[in-house]
């Protein structure tokens, strides 16, 4: 078995209207990775996923799934992939259990084998009680979970999720996160695109940022986040804070009587700030990042590319 789940070499895509969506991107995703493919709208994420899953025809370049070239043996290559697309795309007039077992059939899994597997998946994703219902009767969150179940019925080694939690409430999102982590820990390689950057930061080990059809960054999440030289925090204080409060060598922004915004550089730390405030008689009740670290870096990178 190849140690790379996915290798993309010099992939380009020009649509029939002349739009160049991909300008020769390269990516290598190791087996077992939880990989974030991030980018603004129209960056080329969905085009890349569409080409990997053969919904979109590439203009040039090579793609290998677990060492199998999709141009040479697409049948075998595709058996390794499961896709959770961005848009709801099942037959809303079919019962849920039919949607799952039909998908299994398209991958060569017989109904006899698929039925017990579907039961396990639907139970895991809290959909078993709904198995005989038409999918049009499901809530948005349930439909999202159904798409995950459908993508997993043939036990893919590589699961690709294109904004799987878009529009899902917090509870559904948490349930999905837990399940995706469970899958990844049990050997499924996962590629995730999402607009919720805290989702990527929370789940993913490696990251690529794509914009305008080019890969701007491709590294481990840890290395990428370490590029952040300054982090902005919001501190909520026990005591009332004076508008004239100052701390030596710190740039404070007093938002209201009990809220302070402060920037912490990489050579400083939050403990010393809390000590400094304590000396001034101010206790910190709680604190949070102003924006997620990933969001901060993402915006910088994309803005820079825009310029």
């Amino acid at each position: 078995m190849d140690s790379s789940a996915l290798v993309i070499n010099n992939l380009t895509k020009t649509y029939s209207n002349g739009l160049k969506a991909l300008h020769g991107i390269n990516l290598e995703i190791p087996h077992g990775d939880f990989f974030a493919l991030l980018g603004p709208n129209g960056a080329g994420k969905s085009t890349t996923i569409g080409i990997i899953t053969s919904l979109i025809k590439k203009t040039s370049g090579d793609i290998k799934i677990y060492g199998i070239d999709i141009d040479k043996d697409f049948v075998k290559a595709k058996t390794y992939i499961g896709l959770v697309p961005q848009e709801i795309n099942f037959n809303t007039f079919e019962p849920i259990s039919e949607i799952i077992t039909n998908q299994a059939g398209y991958y060569g899994v017989t109904r006899e084998v698929a039925l017990p597997e579907a039961e396990k998946l639907l139970k895991k994703l809290n959909l078993w009680d709904k198995r005989d219902q038409y999918s049009r009767n499901l809530s948005g969150g349930m439909q999202r979970r159904l798409m995950v179940a459908r993508a997993l019925i043939h036990k893919p080694k590589l699961l690709i999720l294109d904004e799987p939690t878009a529009g899902a409430d917090v509870e559904v999102r948490r349930l999905m996160w837990d399940y995706l982590k469970f899958l990844n820990e049990n050997g499924t390689t996962i590629i995730l695109t999402t607009h919720y950057l805290e989702e990527a930061e929370h789940l993913c080990k490696n990251i690529a940022i794509i914009d305008d059809g080019k890969i701007l960054e491709n590294s481990s999440m840890k290395n990428f986040l370490s590029q952040l030289k300054n982090e902005k925090f919001i501190l909520y204080t026990q005591e009332k804070v004076s508008k004239n409060l100052t701390l030596e060598s710190r740039n404070l922004n007093i938002i209201d009587d009990h809220t302070i915004e402060v920037s912490i550089s990489e050579d400083s730390d939050i403990n010393s700030l809390i000590q400094d405030l304590s000396i001034k008689g101010i206790k910190v009740k709680s604190l949070k990042n102003k924006t997620s670290r990933l969001e901060e870096l993402f915006m910088r990178l994309v803005d820079k590319n825009g310029k």
Binding site: S54, L55, N89, F90, N91, G108
Partner: peptide
């Protein structure tokens, strides 16, 4: 199946 996009179930699978 094209209109509701569930043709994609077939297109992403290893069906010839």
């Amino acid at each position: 199946s094209k209109y509701h996009r569930y043709i994609e179930e077939l297109l992403v699978s290893p069906i010839q």
